[in-house]
Design a protein around this nucleic acid. Structure first.
Lengths: 103, 103
DNA sequence: AAACTACTTGGCGGATTCGCCAAATAGTTT
DNA sequence: AAACTATTTGGCGAATCCGCCAAGTAGTTT
């Protein structure tokens, strides 16, 4: 395996890893509908604010979200467009798994 | 957050987590081109056979691949169709991240 | 059945993840 | 500046992940 391939795979794995958590998925889904401040996301997730903040830091490090401070609050938004389609596909995967189990 | 939403998110997170490793991504990409036995995948990945086998077990537990013994060898194949489109989207995410960094 | 090939499983050490608490930082209000 | 709100950071313990080695299992060949 050449270096270029490895880099491509590592990059993709990094994005997937950042998304691979229920709370982070929920936050990304909410951000698809528009920017949200941390406290709004915290209420949706229902965890400690520090936990939510760290999840957001993971998404930010992966380049999936961006943040902007406005007064006391910090607002997060998605940095890329195709997340919806992406999730639809993950959904399809799950459907085929379920079908397989029924047989 | 209701139980149904949580289940949906946990399911999706499980699939993403199973895919979130360079070696597993490589194997899935190879399996898109047709079934492969473990030793073929091992050669591509370049790790210990036991490591490869465990990665395949992760993919199998997530419902992404299925296996079938034929003689001495065990062949793995994808169980679902949309992985290509899926990966294209992960690729797009990476492109937008790179664009963001250049600015 | 003994030797051989292909694969899986057990287990260990090191690294990473996760959620909470406590403490630090940043901006606003009084 | 003191008090207050919103958020981030540090750190701890529990859990999980990762890769290797060793040992076990399954089918094939001799």
């Amino acid at each position: 395996m050449d270096a270029k391939t490895r880099q491509r795979l590592e990059g993709r794995a990094r994005v997937l890893k950042a998304l691979a958590h229920p709370s982070r998925l929920l936050m990304v889904e909410q951000l698809e509908r528009g920017e949200r401040c941390v406290c709004e996301l915290q209420e949706m997730v229902g965890a400690d604010m520090s936990t939510v903040s760290k999840h957001l830091a993971v998404l930010k490090r992966a380049g999936i979200v961006a943040d902007e401070r406005r007064g006391v609050q910090v607002y997060y938004r998605l940095t890329m467009p195709c997340v919806t389609r992406f999730f639809d596909c993950v959904g399809e995967v799950l459907v085929s798994i379920k079908k397989g189990k029924k047989r």
